[in-house]
Structure formats: structure tokens, C-alpha cells
Design a protein around this nucleic acid. Structure first.
Lengths: 212, 212, 212, 212
DNA sequence: GATGAATGAGTCTTCATTCAT
DNA sequence: CATGAATGAAGACTCATTCAT
């Protein structure tokens, strides 16, 4: 069996194991067995547990970014594009829950992995930021948002999206039929945030009452 | 030294260790040493590693829920109350980053821990849901939101809040002075979502364009 | 059982194992079993295989140097002192063949070990050199030997001694009764070299015939 | 490429690896790579690691014995012949340090290898013994040396020679120019032992003082 | 003849956990 | 109460060795 195929099998098994048990708790023995190969072969191809994890992380990052980019490829109104992107994101998280879980785990596994995921977040945040800026331009209200503010908003959006993805997956696991579709989830999030974002691009802000 | 004090020392050390290294990677040796006691004593008081972790999780859950409840104690307009709750939440996450990290880790450590954290989420979600319902009443538009929709929104809000808390903590770690205050972070999130939530309580929805 | 005792047991077992099989081939499993303890205890007390080996090397070096120093303690004519030292050396190598073997192995196990043994050789060579110098003084012929020449001679003497020790041990192993005593072996070596050394201190040298 | 050439390449690589790392630590992978062939080929030609090591040992033994025999070919006075043999020996050890190191290692690798090297030592010892006997005849004092005594002396001589060879190689490694030539080293050893050996063939012996 | 693919067995090392004192 | 002493079980990693092609 050619190396490429074997390697993909190993990565698949590893992603599943890391997703389920975390980096530390997943054992190379189990991964090898799940991949249907012997442990030495895993080491021959992927060097070490750390390298194997990194390979998983990189593969899943590539897949996620590709999915989202594909979703936002088509030009259009800012809200439509955001909705497209979110739909693609939720479709991807539903299709590859293990991959998403691995990325989640990677964020608590030390420097090199954190860096990798952070870089991905930056990439996606930039995408979102671009859409917000476009929205601001569309409403003729450029420059209303400070950089730090945008950063915070992007994190809020990404966090909300991740949380919703998890929630949707949990629903799907509990009762397959009751799970919301990617489009539904995306709509929920759009409803949740779009009006607020729109206000912000116009400079309208929520403020706490007097004395706060 | 009274048992209560010793036990708190152990929990403090354990929370720090679990937050930093995760459940598996944190070693009982290190925890005992950090707590300044011998290992057998840890076992005498806390039975096992799992029980110790559970004790940490429960304590941090209690602390977090108490903080948020305290923040929303005062009656008032729904938005003001939500803002109060968020401020309390962000103040708490900034004050006890390790505690939050432990709760985060707990969500990927198997049944019993997941259940505990999930229960907490349900509790907080209920609180948020209550506020949304109040907001709906305030605007005279009761019943506009389906239960599932509210659930999704609450998850989005909680996820956004968690993500922002992490982001704020990361900022604080990188450059203490540049870190946003709890109030600022709460304001960011309110700006992000309040307009959308208000619309929803009025029955106004974002919808994808035709053909989507 | 007190730590000190256990540690000596472990070192004894380790010296035997390293002597027999070499550093690489000796397994921590076997050493632990031979010492009558579990492997984790070996690691608790001696940190790692490398540290364990180093501890063995250091202990055997100390024992050997102490034996030789003890043998040459008593002042007297240079040849008598040298003979005393050699006798002590051969008695020690006969009594602790494993220790000697470990020192032998250490000389091919990389920097830190080589250094340790080399330092010991330097110490013993200095002792021998002192005796040669004394012999030169006794015969009223100081300064006849260049430093490099002495170094070479010392190495030759030490090498001859080691080789004889091995040979004597091999004889003892093959047929206990036929083994030469330490005194006999020392006499053999004295016979082998003393006349030559004496000549050298007098400036008399062996030279190859013409045309060589 | 003809089998013979390939095989020599493998042996060269193996000798270098075994010399540097020892039998256990040298890996077949590294040897195959260093030899520029694939691992299965090594197994095809040389059967196993043990056989490979044995082949190395045998080759180096043949080379060393041939060198020394060649050195002592020319008839002459016993001391001249011994000097010739030693010069040849030191020239060989300087030219093939790896080969010598392998023989050294072989002496601690269990029965079959020990036997091989021992046989070689016996061969060389016989050669030396012959020279000593000749010296005794030359001085008209036959039969003065017991067999066991000669054996001990031969071992002392061989040990001294090995030790000096090592010392000379170490000097060469540390500072190529300062290394003693084979002739110098041979002279050092002759100075060290010849007078003593000559005495012995005459029946003159060193004896410890009274009361020893 | 030569090799890419594959593995069983074994190595060092660590950790949660328990007694006897 | 508190601890020094001790271990069973398991994990990452490596190596000599063999086929199918």
C-alpha cells in the first residue's frame, strides 16, 4: 500500500483519537491500532507524537480555511457574504467534528500549536474584518471602528460561532433529526449579531445607563 | 493546621496545575509539592485524582455562578441587567483565570465532568433566557422567540463571552496595561449583540436574500 | 529498608550488569530485578540510566584510587613503593573484577564518562610519575626524562597492569587454584619493567641498531 | 557493482560504526546508509548483525596479524625483531584506528568474539614468546623462564603496547603534529621493557625486600 | 539484484496509588 | 496526623529483521 494512503489513514485515526481523548491521553498504541498499522510505521512516517499532532492540526486548519474561503468566494453584499461564510463554517464543523475538536485541543497544548491555530484565527479574523469594513463602506460610514474594537468583535463572533457549532453538534449527537442545519445555525448567528454590527458601522453604540 | 485550610491549599495548587497542564499532564506529585503537603495526605483528603479534579471543577463552578448571580441581583431594565451580569462575568474571569481554564478543560474530560459543566451552562443559560424574556415583555412582544431559538442564542452569547474573556486575558498577559477592563469588554459584547437581540424580541429577523 | 542500603544494593546490581553486558546492553529491568526492587524505585533514587552508570563509575573510581593510595601510603625506596602500589592494585582488581570492568566500559561511553576515567588515570599517572622521579633522585640522575616520555611510560605501565589484571582474573575464572596471587602478578610486572625504568632514570637507553 | 566491492563497502561502514558506538549502539540502519546500500542488501550479504560484526572482527584480526608478521619477517637479533614487530604494530594501529577499536570492543561481546580475539592474542603471544626464547638462547641461558611466567610477560607486553597505541592515537587526535611516530612509540616501549626482559632471560630477577 | 513497506519485541521512563511506621 | 518507601501498569520510542515486488 502506497505511503500516501497509509499516511492519510494514520492522520484520520490520529485526528479521531486526539479529538476524543486530547493530546496527552491519546496513546500512540491506540492510534496505530485504529489506523490498522503497527506503531513503528507511525513513527517511521510521522516522526513523533508531537509531529503527528502537528500534522493533524495543520491538515485540519487547511481544510477549515479552505472551506470558509470557498464559502466567501462569491462577491456580494457584506451581510450575504458573512452569511455564506458562516454557512460554510457550520457545514464544515458538522461534517468534520473531529477536526474542529483537534483545533480546539491544540489551543491548550503549548507554543507551537497555539501559534498555528492563532495564525489561522488571524487569517479568518482578517476575512471578517474585511467584510465589516465593506459593510461600513456600503453604509457610507467608514472609519467608525477602532482596530482594537474590531479585534474584540471578531473574537466575539468567532467564539459565538464555535460555541454554536458545538451546540449544533451536540444536538446532532443527541437526536440526529432535531439537529439544526448549517443554514439555520448561520441564520441564528446572523440574527444574533447583524443588527448590532450594522449599528456599530454607523457609529451607533449601546451605552450603560447613567451612574454605571 | 485545620483540615479546611489544608484542603483549600490543595485545591488551589490543583486548580493551578490543571489549568496549566490539563488533567492528564498535571501530576499528583507536583500538586502535592505545590500545596506544600505530602502525597498521601492529598489522597487521604481527596480520594483520587479524579475526585480532586471534580472538587476543583465544583468549586470553580460555584464561584463563577455566585459571581454572575451577584452581578445580576439588582433588578432593572433587561439590558442593564445583562450588562451587569457580563461585567461580573468578565471581572471574575480576569480575577480567576485558572478557575476558568479548569472549567474549560473539564469540558473535554469525559462524562462526569462534562455533565457538571453542562449543568452550569444550563443554569446560566436560564438566567440569560430570563432576561431575554423580560426584554420581550418590556417591548410588549412576548412569545416571539421559540425555545430552540433562545437556546441557540444563549449558546452564542455564552460562547462569545468566553471567547472575549480569553482574548482579554491574553491581552492582559501580553501587556498588562493594555488589557481592557471588565466593563469595556462587557460593552464590546453588548454592542455586538444587543441591537440584534432587541430586534429579535420584536420579531424582526435577518433573512438571507432570495435564492439562498 | 533505609534508602542508603537500598541504594548500595542497586549500585551493586548495576555494576555487575554493566560489567557483564556493557552500558547499552544492560537493561534497567534486569538491574532492578537483580537488586530485588522495582524499576520505579531505581529511577526514584538514581534518576536515569546515565546517572546510574555515572554513580557506578564514580564509586568504583573512588574505591580503586583509595586502594592504590592505601597501598603506597608507606614511604620507602621507589621500587618498594611501586611494588606496594601494584600489589594493592592487583589485589583490588582481583577482589572487585566487576568494578574494574565497569571502568573499562566507561572508557568507550562518551564524553562525561571518559572524562571521569581520564581524570582518574591522570591521578594515578601522577602517583607513578612521582615514584619515577623519586627513583631518578635516588640514583642521583634527576631530569633525565622528558615529560612526554614519562607520560608514555606511565601509560605503558598502566596498560600492562590492566592487561595483567585481566589475565590474572581470566586465570582465576578458568581454574581458581591456579590463579596467581596479587603479589605474584606484581612481581611479574616489576620484573618486566623495573630494570628498564632504572636504566632510563640513569639516562641509559635502548636504541635500534644502525640503519633503522 | 560486483558483490566483492559492495561487501567491502559494508564492512568499512560497519567497522567505523562499531568502533564509534559499540556493538549494541551501532544500528544496522546507520551502517546500511553509511555504506550507501539498502538494509535488506546488508542482510542478504551478511546474514545478521552478529555475523556482520564477526566478519568485521575477522577481517581486522587478519589485517593486524598480517601487519605484525610482515614486520617480523626479517631474521635478526631478538631485540631488533621485537622492535620491528612493535613498529609494525604501532604503524598499523595508527593507520587503522577503527579496526583496533573493533577488536577492543569484541573482547566484551560474549563468547564467540572473545574466542576469536583470544586466538589472535595467542598467536601473537607465541610470536613474542619465540623471540624471548631466542633471546634466552642468544644469551646462552635457556630454560630460565617458566611457561606461566612467559605468558604473563607476553600479556604485559601486549597490554602495554595496546595502551601505548591508544595513547598515541589520542595524541594524534588532539594535535596531529604532536603525535609520536610508530618508531618513537616502539622505542618508548623497548626502553620500558627490554632491560627487564634481558635480565629475566639471564635469570636475574627483581625481588621485594625482606619481610614483604 | 535491489528495495519500499512493515513489524514483534524490547527499552527507558513516568505516574497514580498504597502501606508500615 | 503525616510520611518515607515502594510498585503495577502503561506510554513513547527504537531496532533487528523480513517480505512482496
Amino acid at each position: 500500500m502506497p505511503r500516501e494512503v497509509r499516511e492519510r489513514q494514520m492522520l484520520d485515526a490520529a485526528v479521531a483519537a486526539f479529538a476524543r481523548h486530547g493530546y496527552q491521553a491519546a496513546s500512540m498504541d491506540d492510534i496505530a491500532e485504529a489506523a490498522g498499522v503497527s506503531k513503528p510505521l507511525v513513527y517511521l512516517y510521522l516522526k513523533s507524537k508531537e509531529d503527528l499532532f502537528m500534522a493533524c492540526v495543520r491538515r485540519e486548519i487547511r481544510a477549515l480555511v479552505a472551506a470558509v474561503r470557498q464559502g466567501t468566494r462569491e462577491r456580494g453584499a457584506a451581510d450575504q457574504q458573512l452569511w455564506n461564510g458562516l454557512t460554510a463554517f457550520f457545514a464544515h464543523t458538522a461534517a468534520r467534528p473531529h477536526g474542529i475538536a483537534v483545533l480546539h485541543r491544540a489551543r491548550t497544548q503549548g507554543e507551537p500549536f497555539v501559534q498555528e491555530v492563532t495564525a489561522m484565527r488571524v487569517e479568518i479574523t482578517a476575512l471578517v474584518t474585511g467584510l465589516l469594513a465593506q459593510a461600513a463602506r456600503d453604509t457610507g460610514c467608514d472609519g467608525a471602528l477602532a482596530e482594537r474594537e474590531v479585534s474584540g468583535l471578531a473574537h466575539a463572533l468567532v467564539g459565538a460561532a464555535e460555541s454554536l457549532a458545538e451546540w449544533a453538534n451536540a444536538r446532532a449527537a443527541a437526536d440526529g433529526d432535531a439537529a439544526p442545519s448549517a443554514k439555520e445555525t448561520a441564520a441564528t448567528l446572523m440574527n444574533f449579531c447583524w443588527a448590532g454590527l450594522e449599528n456599530l458601522t454607523k457609529g451607533a453604540r449601546w451605552v450603560p445607563g447613567p451612574g454605571r
